[in-house]
C-alpha cells in the first residue's frame, strides 16, 4: 500500500534568502490522522502551500498516493482537498455557487457537481444557507463552507490548516466529530492546529516541525509516553495551613484548599491518595495543570531552540 503523502528532503528558500524548510522528510500512511504541529513560523503553512500548489518548492520531492507532483501534479491535486487558514472564497458569491464552482474546476459535470454540493452542504449543516451570499455567514459557517468546498471532489487526502481557529467550543466539538467520521470512512487527514487538546483528541500520529525541520514524527500515544512528569491540581475538602508532606511526591500549596503535585511517570496516584488520607485530607477533584501534549510540546520546542519567524 503506497503512502498517502510522501515528502522527501523538501526545501524552501524564499526570495529574501529565508530558509523556511530545511530538507524535511514526512511519510503519512493511508487512513492516517496526522497532526502537524509547530510554533508560528515553523514551516507548517509553507509545507501545506507546497503540497497544494500555492507555493513553489526550492528542491525535494512530494508524492501524493504515489503521484509525484513534478510529473503528475494534476493527478496529485485531484487527490487533495485543502482547507486553508484564511477565508479564501469570493465574499459576493452564493454559498452553493462557491461549492459547485470548485467542483467544476475539478472537472465534475454539472449534474454531479450539483449533487455533491447538496450532499456536502447537508453534511456540514449549511444547506439552509445555500442561497446566502457568503459574506453574510458567521465565522463558524465560513469555516464549514471551506470544508464543504474542499470535499466536493471527494479527495482521499484532506489537509486542514487550523480549521477550528476562532471557533466556539460547541462548533469545535461538532467539527471534531465530523472529521473523525470522515477519517473512519477512509479519508487521510492532516491537520495543523495550535489547540493541542485537539491534536491529542483527534490524531493518531503527531509530527512537530520547528525552524523548518521535523523534530518529532511518531504516534500520539508513543509521544505521550515520553512524558516523565505530570503536574496535577488537587482540590481538597478542608483548608490546610501548609502543604502536606507525601513521601516520594513534590506537593505545593496553591491556596488553602488547592494543592499542586508533580507525579513521576509510573509512580501512580494511589500512594499519594493513601498518604493524604492518613493525614485526614480528602481529595474532591483532580485535573492536569496543563494539557499533557502542551507540556511535551513546549519542552520539545524549547529543547530544539530553533523557532524563527516566517517572512
Amino acid at each position: 500500500m503506497s503512502s498517502a503523502l510522501s515528502i522527501r528532503n523538501l526545501r524552501k528558500v524564499y526570495s529574501g534568502g529565508f530558509e523556511a524548510l530545511k530538507g524535511i522528510d514526512l511519510e503519512v500512511e493511508q487512513g492516517q490522522f496526522l497532526a502537524l504541529l509547530g510554533p508560528n513560523g515553523a514551516g507548517k503553512s509553507t509545507t501545506i502551500g507546497i503540497i497544494s500548489g500555492l507555493v513553489n518548492k526550492s528542491s525535494g520531492s512530494i508524492a501524493v498516493f504515489g503521484r509525484d507532483i513534478d510529473r503528475d501534479f494534476s493527478g496529485a491535486k485531484r487527490e487533495i482537498g485543502v482547507v486553508p487558514q484564511e477565508f479564501n472564497f469570493n465574499q459576493f458569491e452564493r454559498v452553493a455557487d462557491i461549492v459547485a464552482t470548485q467542483a467544476g474546476m475539478y472537472g465534475l459535470p454539472r449534474k454531479l457537481a450539483t449533487q455533491r454540493t447538496e450532499t456536502y452542504l447537508h453534511r456540514l449543516g449549511l444547506w439552509d444557507k445555500r442561497n446566502e451570499r457568503s459574506r453574510f455567514l458567521s465565522g463558524g459557517m465560513k469555516r464549514r463552507l471551506m470544508i464543504a468546498r474542499a470535499l466536493v471532489h471527494e479527495p482521499r487526502l484532506l489537509i486542514l490548516d487550523e480549521p477550528t481557529a476562532g471557533v466556539d467550543i460547541e462548533l469545535r466539538r461538532s467539527m471534531w466529530s465530523f472529521l473523525r467520521q470522515l477519517n473512519a470512512e477512509g479519508t487521510t487527514i492532516i491537520l495543523t492546529t495550535h489547540y493541542l487538546e485537539e491534536a491529542e483528541s483527534l490524531c493518531r500520529q503527531i509530527a512537530i516541525i520547528d525552524g523548518g525541520e521535523i523534530v518529532v514524527n511518531t504516534e500520539t500515544k508513543t509521544l505521550l509516553q515520553r512524558m516523565n512528569t505530570e503536574t496535577f491540581i488537587l482540590d481538597i475538602d478542608e483548608p490546610c495551613e501548609a502543604a502536606p508532606a507525601a513521601d516520594g511526591y513534590a506537593v505545593r500549596k496553591i491556596d488553602s484548599t488547592t494543592l499542586e503535585v508533580d507525579v513521576v511517570k509510573d509512580q501512580g496516584l494511589n500512594q499519594l491518595f493513601s498518604q493524604l488520607m492518613t493525614q485526614g485530607i480528602q481529595v474532591i477533584s483532580m485535573r492536569n495543570k496543563a494539557n499533557r501534549l502542551e507540556e511535551l510540546f513546549v519542552s520539545l520546542i524549547e529543547g530544539n531552540g530553533a523557532t524563527t519567524a516566517e517572512p
Binding site: 494534476s74 491535486k77 487533495i80 474546476m105 475539478y106
Partner: peptide, 18 residues
C-alpha cells in the same frame, strides 16, 4: 485582480486545471 485580492485565486491554484 479581485480573485487575487480576496485570495479566491487559491481555489483555482489548488485544482488540477491547466
Amino acid at each position: 485582480y479581485n480573485t487575487k485580492f480576496q485570495r479566491c485565486i487559491e481555489e483555482m491554484l489548488v485544482s488540477p486545471m491547466p
